[in-house]
Design a protein around this nucleic acid. Structure first.
Length: 404
RNA sequence: GGAUGGGUGCCCGAGUGGUUAAAGGGGGCGGUCUGUAAAAUCGCUGGCUAACGCCUACGUUGGUUCGAAUCCAACCCCAUCCA
């Protein structure tokens, strides 16, 4: 059995901050002694069904807790999510129906299950206890926190001092989230650093209700593929866990080298020193990055796909050959003799003839290895391949059986 | 309800009567190069055209003008302040 100190060291790898290490040690120690798993909570808003690598930072940490035999609880914030987005700018939030929430939960678990052990995972909904909450109870809850404390929170504070609106119900958010921890008797709660305030409030409220406070573990925000801004779908610098293997592999290869150590640490739980040593030993950074890419693909798709993604990548970008899985186009007779623009404009992913012209002018198009220019007429045959830019390939499929 | 400032291309943002398909930046795409879809560097980035050129576009609708993103009117929307 591992001793508590090294277990804690291992659990805190990559963690931005913990409140508090001593408490975590104490809880782990007690858990070991009494053979009772800790309850580890992660709150999830039923709003963003597509999980990307940024979200998996927290999931990876949860996985580590699972590995130690603790109980992970996904708390779906169906109640908090239903009330509305704090910005209040976008019109009244669509009410989420029970079915919506249900569907969300399923997709979420399906995706999160690529990182976590689904059999050791409990799903709860905060409407279970928030819905029946009566005004008297709510008042009781509210009486345990002061306005000043709530306004300490960074974003409230900023908005208030900049005279941006704060809606009254938004003040309740931290309270409700805190109450969730009371209801679950959570021992540990994970969140991004942006969750700091909410989690600290939860600890306070738990104490007010006579419970031992939870340990707050704050995970750093993962930078996106651009290496600068946080990973988010709207910034387009994300890698989704459901993306095809080649896509994941390629996107990971495109991150700046400087980001590798961090991704290894946050996404795979590696020690930063391990990777730094390899770099210091002049191992080719490309290979280290390729390994990162392969391991991530493997995590989401399995070993076999990880290996294949790597092979395809090497073939396409290092040897510049046509990848195995280039999209197939069914042969069309007019392709026997066709103007370059017509051909390119008809390919998937080319939005307009203007774009086709641009690509041809810039020398981006190759047919069977032969560069094609704007005014060329090309002749294709079944088995031909077309390359557009560095990474778009198409293979013309042999004639389908004409009978169907 | 009142006051003020705004609504420009995928995003940010300049532009106050013609030289504006609209500066600049970001993003995207492409060429070269390379250890990678890294970095660097050069180019493209509304649509139609092989090209000349044509068409559509600056919140909406109407107007003034030879000519409007730019002026006028009404309307819609957003932000802040006062109530």
């Amino acid at each position: 059995m591992r001793d508590i100190q090294s277990t804690v060291d291992w659990l805190l790898n990559g963690v931005d901050d913990v409140v508090s290490r001593e408490l975590l040690e104490a809880k782990l120690e007690r858990s070991q002694r009494t053979q009772t798993p800790l309850i580890v909570k992660l709150g999830v808003d039923p709003t963003a069904p597509d999980i990307h690598l940024g979200h998996t930072v927290v999931l990876e940490k949860l996985r580590q807790f699972q590995e130690l035999g603790h109980q992970v609880v996904f708390l779906i914030g169906d109640m908090t999510g239903r009330i509305g987005d704090p910005t209040g700018r976008s019109e009244t939030r669509r009410q989420l129906s029970k079915e919506d929430v249900q569907k969300f939960a399923e997709t979420y678990v399906a995706q999160a299950g690529k990182v976590l052990d689904r059999d050791r995972l409990i799903l709860r909904y905060n409407s279970e206890w928030l819905e029946p909450l009566r005004l008297a109870e709510l008042i009781d809850l509210m009486s345990r926190v002061t306005l000043a404390r709530i306004l300490e929170r960074d974003d409230f504070h900023d908005r208030f001092s900049q005279h941006f609106p704060i809606h009254l119900h938004e003040l309740l958010y931290p309270l409700m989230q805190a109450y969730d921890s009371v209801a679950l008797k959570a021992d540990v709660e994970l969140g991004g650093t942006d969750q700091r305030f909410n989690i600290l409030t939860a600890r306070q409220i738990q104490e007010a209700y006579g419970q031992e406070p939870e340990v707050g573990l704050f995970m750093p925000i993962l930078e996106g593929t651009d290496g600068v801004r946080k990973m988010s779908k709207s910034l387009g610098n994300y890698v989704g866990v459901e993306e095809p293997p080649d896509e994941i592999f390629g996107k990971v290869m495109s991150i700046p080298d400087s980001l590798m150590v961090r991704w290894y640490q946050l996404l795979l739980g590696e020690r930063p020193e391990t990777i730094q040593q390899r770099l210091a030993a002049h191992e080719n950074p490309r290979d280290i990055k390729a390994e990162l890419a392969r391991r991530l693909v493997s995590r989401f798709w399995g070993e076999e796909w990880g290996r294949r993604a790597q092979e395809n990548f090497d073939r396409t970008f290092r040897a510049r050959e046509v990848p195995d899985d280039a999209p197939l186009l069914s042969w069309r007779s007019e392709w026997a003799q066709i103007g370059a623009i017509d051909l390119v404009a008809g390919l998937p992913g080319v939005p307009s003839r203007q774009e086709a012209r641009r690509l041809l002018t810039q020398g981006a198009v190759t047919v069977d290895g032969q560069r094609v220019s704007l005014t060329d007429t090309v002749s294709l045959q079944p088995g031909s391949w077309i390359k557009v830019g560095k990474r778009r390939f198409f293979r013309v499929q042999e004639l389908e059986t004409e009978s169907r």
